[in-house]
Design a protein around this nucleic acid. Sequence first.
DNA 1: TGTTAACCGAGACGGTACGTCCTGTCTTTAA
DNA 2: TTAAAGACAGGACGTACCGTCTCGGTTAACA
Lengths: 198, 198, 198, 198
Amino acid sequence: MGGSTAPHRGNRHGRSEEARQAVLEAADDLLAERGFAGVTIEGIAARAGVAKQTIYRWWPSKVDVLLEAFTEDMAEHLTPEDHGDLGTELRTHLARLAEFLTGSDPGAVFRALAGQAQHDPQLAARLRDDHLSGQRDRDRAPLLRAVERGELPADLDVDVALDQLVGPIYYRVLVTGSPVPRTFTDDLVAAFLHRHQH
Amino acid sequence: MGGSTAPHRGNRHGRSEEARQAVLEAADDLLAERGFAGVTIEGIAARAGVAKQTIYRWWPSKVDVLLEAFTEDMAEHLTPEDHGDLGTELRTHLARLAEFLTGSDPGAVFRALAGQAQHDPQLAARLRDDHLSGQRDRDRAPLLRAVERGELPADLDVDVALDQLVGPIYYRVLVTGSPVPRTFTDDLVAAFLHRHQH
Amino acid sequence: MGGSTAPHRGNRHGRSEEARQAVLEAADDLLAERGFAGVTIEGIAARAGVAKQTIYRWWPSKVDVLLEAFTEDMAEHLTPEDHGDLGTELRTHLARLAEFLTGSDPGAVFRALAGQAQHDPQLAARLRDDHLSGQRDRDRAPLLRAVERGELPADLDVDVALDQLVGPIYYRVLVTGSPVPRTFTDDLVAAFLHRHQH
Amino acid sequence: MGGSTAPHRGNRHGRSEEARQAVLEAADDLLAERGFAGVTIEGIAARAGVAKQTIYRWWPSKVDVLLEAFTEDMAEHLTPEDHGDLGTELRTHLARLAEFLTGSDPGAVFRALAGQAQHDPQLAARLRDDHLSGQRDRDRAPLLRAVERGELPADLDVDVALDQLVGPIYYRVLVTGSPVPRTFTDDLVAAFLHRHQH
DNA sequence: TGTTAACCGAGACGGTACGTCCTGTCTTTAA
DNA sequence: TTAAAGACAGGACGTACCGTCTCGGTTAACA
C-alpha cells in the first residue's frame, strides 16, 4: 500500500473507498450469519454505517454487492500450478476447488450467487461471463499444457473433459450436499487419466 | 355418486380439491411467467381466486407450494427402463434426465427449487430427502442390475459412479448453462463403460 | 350507533376503530409537541402502534389525518346560541371564536391546516367546502334571525357583513399574531351595530 | 457599496451577484410552477446552475430564499400616497393591497410564506418584524395624517382601526379564497368612515 | 509576479421520510 | 370445518431531499 491513498469522504474525485470496503464486509458478514435472505440493503447499510443511497449509488442490487465481494475474495485462490505432471496438477487443483466450494467463506458466497442465478438469467450470464469464465480458463490450463506435452491426445475436447472432471464436484456441492473428500476428487482424476492416457 | 367430489366453496367436509389445484397451477404459471421472485403468496392467492389464509392453512411457505407442484409433475418422468443392456439403459436414461432438466416445465421448477435450496439448508435437506432420493434410487437401478448380471464389478462404488455419470449434466444445467446434447450424455456413458467394463 | 360497535381488529366488516382513534390521537399529539413538520406518517404509525399501511389505507396523506382529527374536535364548539338579542349573540359568538382559534388544541390544528392550505389549493378547497362552510352557516344564523326580527335591514349583504365581523379576528390569528381580547371582538360588534342599526 | 458590483465569479471580495440573482429567480419560478412543496434546495440549485453549498452559504433555509425574493419584489408596491383626503387614500390603498395579495407574483410568495409561518413561529416572528411591520407603518400613515388634520378623533385606536380595515381582506385571501373586488374594499372604507367621521 | 484567500461548481456522504409491496396472523360471514 | 375476504402489525424496498463535507478551479488583492 504505497503511501497516501488519502481517506476522503465524499468529494469530486469519486467514491469513498472506506464506505466501499465497509459495505462489502457487511454484506459478507450478513451472508455468513443470516444467509442470503438475511442480506438486505437496509441491513448492509446499518451494519456498515453507511447510507442506503450510498449503496444504491454504486451497486444496482444486493447481488451486485455480493458479486463484488466474491470477486475480491476469489482472485487469489484456485490458480492451478504448473508441475509438469498432469496427474499431480489435476489432483491438487480439484482438491483445492472442492475445498474452496465447500469450506471457504467465498465458497459460501458463490453458492448463494449460484442459487440466485437460478432465479435470474441475467445474473446467471453475468456470473458466467464475468466471474467463472476466468476460472474456467485457469482450469483449462493443465489440460492444454498436457496436450502440448503429448500427454493427452491432440483431438481431446477440452470442454467436455473439464465438465467430466469438475461437474461431479459442483453436483455434490449444489445438489446432493455430500462432502467432497480427497478420495472423490482423486478418483475423478484417475477415471480421466485411465480413459485418455493410452 | 360415490363420496364427495362436489365442487364446494367452503364447507364442513374437508379441504377443497378445487382450491388446491388452483393454487398449484397458479404457482406454476407465475414461476413460468415471472420467475421465482414473481411467485408470492399474495400473487398466487389473487390468481387462484383463493384466500391467502387458505394457502397458509395447507402450505408453510411458497416453496412448499412449488415443491408439491413439482412432485406431481415429476412422478411420471425418469424411471429408467429395464432393457437388459447397461449401455442402452444408461444412454437412454441420461438423455431423458438432460431433457427433463433443460426442457420441461417441471425442470424449470426444479432449477428454481435447487437455487432456493442454496439459501435455505432446510429446503435443501427436504429436497434431497423427500424428492431427489427417490430419483436417485431409480437412477441407481440400472447399475445394480448390471452388477448382478456381472457386467460391472461387485465392488463398484455405485454412488461415486452415479455422481460421475449425472454430475456433469447437473453442472451444465446449474452452473455453465451450456446445452446438454445427446453426444454429451453418450460420451459420459462411454467414459464410464470404458473404465469399468475392461 | 346504538349499542355495541364490537371492538374488532381487522376483519371483513371493515376497519379497526381502535386503530383509527390511535392514529388521530397520535397525529394530534405530534402536532402539539413538534409542530406540523414533526407530524410524519412514520411518526404517527410508530406512536400509534400501527402499521404505515394502515394509515395509507384510510387516509391519503397526513393532512387528511389532521383534517379528520380536527373535524372530530370542532363539532361541539362554536354553535352560536339564540338569545333573541343580536348584540349579545354576536359578542358571545365572536369571543368564543377568538378563544377557539387562539387558545384551543383544535384551534392549533386549524392554524396548521390553514397554513398548509396556502401551499395546496385542493386542501384549501376541501377545508372550505367540507369544514368551514358549515361553520360559516352557523355564523350566519344570528344575522339572519336579526333580519327576520327587523333588527337589521332586509337588504343587508350578509356575507360582506360576516367578513367584516370575523375577518379581523382571523387576520390577527393568522397574520399579526396579536392577541384577540374581548375588547377587540366587542369593538367589532359595536362597529357593526353602529353602522347597521342607525 | 458604491457603484459597480462587478460581475465577479469567485474571488476573495465577496459573493457572486450573478449566483444570488439566479437563486432568487429559480426559487420564484419554482414556487410559481410547482408550489411551495416543489421548492427544494436541490431543485433551486439545479435550476439556477449553482452548487447547493452556495445556497447554504448564504441562506439558512429555503424560506429565507423566498423571504429575500419577496422583499425585493414588495418594496416598490404598496406605499399609500398622500392625497390629503382620507377616503380617497384609503380606497386606493386597500384596492392596491387586495390586488397585490390576490393577483401578483409576490403576493403568491407572501401567501406561501404566511402559510409556512403557521408551522413555524420563528418564521412568523421574522415575517412580522422584518417584513410586515414596515408595511403596517405605511398602512398607518393615512390614518395618522387624518388624525393630524382633524378628520379622525385624536383618541382613535389606530391599530384596531387598521385591523378592521385590512383584516377582512386578508381573511378572504387566506381563509375563504373569495375574490376581493373593489366594491368590497370600498365598503370597508365606507363602514370605517361612517363610524369615525361624526 | 507569484501567493494566497474567498468563493465557485460539483457531487459523495450519513441520514430521514416517503409511498409501495409482501409477509404471516387475525377475525368475520357464508356455505 | 373450510372457504373467501380483507384488515392488521411489521419490515424491506427504491426514491427524493436534507444539510455537511471535500475537492479542484477561478479570480483579485497583496506580498
